[in-house]
Amino acid sequence: MPVTELKFYQTGTFTIGNRLLGEEDRAGQSAANRANSLNCGHRACQGCGEALGARYAIDAAIRASKGQLVVANATGCLEVFSTPYPESSWQIAWMHSLFGNAAAVATGIAAAMKVKGRNDVRVLAQGGDGGTTDIGFACLSGMFERNDDVLYVCYDNEGYMNTGVQRSSATPPAARTATTPAMGVEPGNRFGQGKSIPLIAMAHQIPFVATASVANLRDLEDKIERATLMRGARYVHVHVPCPLGWGSEPSDTIKVARLAVETGLFPLFEAEFGALSGHTAIRRRVPVEDYLRLQKRFAHLFRPVVDVARIAHIQAIADHNIERFDLLN
């Protein structure tokens, strides 16, 4: 007699762990002995997506590299909240040099490891979107182009948050920042600007490029772990909401990130040697309005009147992503 096939556990794979799952089926973050590479006592704001994303990513890299990891960090929130004298939150070999040179510093570290025969050590560079897409872009591109043995992780919170929420080339259209105020005929950030570093990274034909989100931990860990074990230049772009800069509730950080994925505004995909090799399908598609409404940086799209045209424009961007990356399948 036909019985519906047993497909899912109680919580499927969407929770971080589950007492019913074997250790190997849980997210790395569920482990009681996880690295906590970014320790308690850091000074990130409440509900900081970047703090969360960084711990997720670095813990995953630590796991994959069996602890043999060195990290170079660009200037930015992550650096400032983690290492103000006299306390560091990092429990790993970590270095901060400048805002725009994390990729190059990592290249140097990787070179040193190479000449010293430390093939076991993996080198990771990390920075925010400002340090990656703008000021650090030349070094990043150089590192890519040379195929240096570095995994670069960008925590994209779509603006210069450390300096007080200014526009970066990762700021989305319509978003209000301190330098794109919500006034005038085109309030907020202009449409038709900005760049996609993941796509630019792909153009360098590097071994691995991926996007990830703090809302999808398993996907993020999988990508970081695989990327950590590859050789050559690798890039993972992690979407990390900033409650302060986005004007979202600290408790909504993961929800907002999830909606960015589910609307199609932040597509999750990966590429090898310049060619798309996979994507993470949208599970429950929602209109962009659901995402925008949670964030004060988009408040001008809804008050005093609903800006139907601009919301439709943003929806069109989401729809384009969905089509381009085949996100519904």
Binding site: N101, A104, T107, G108, I109, A111, A112, K114, V115, G142
Partner: peptide, 28 residues
């Protein structure tokens, strides 16, 4: 021998790479 020679994309990168390699214990 035992030396990595890196053609970088700018002087800023040149010294930055040296900063990284020196911090990782390599004579740079």
């Amino acid at each position: 021998k035992g030396c990595d020679f890196i053609n970088v994309e700018s002087e800023f990168a040149a010294l930055s790479v040296a900063i990284g390699s020196s911090a990782a214990g390599a004579r740079s």
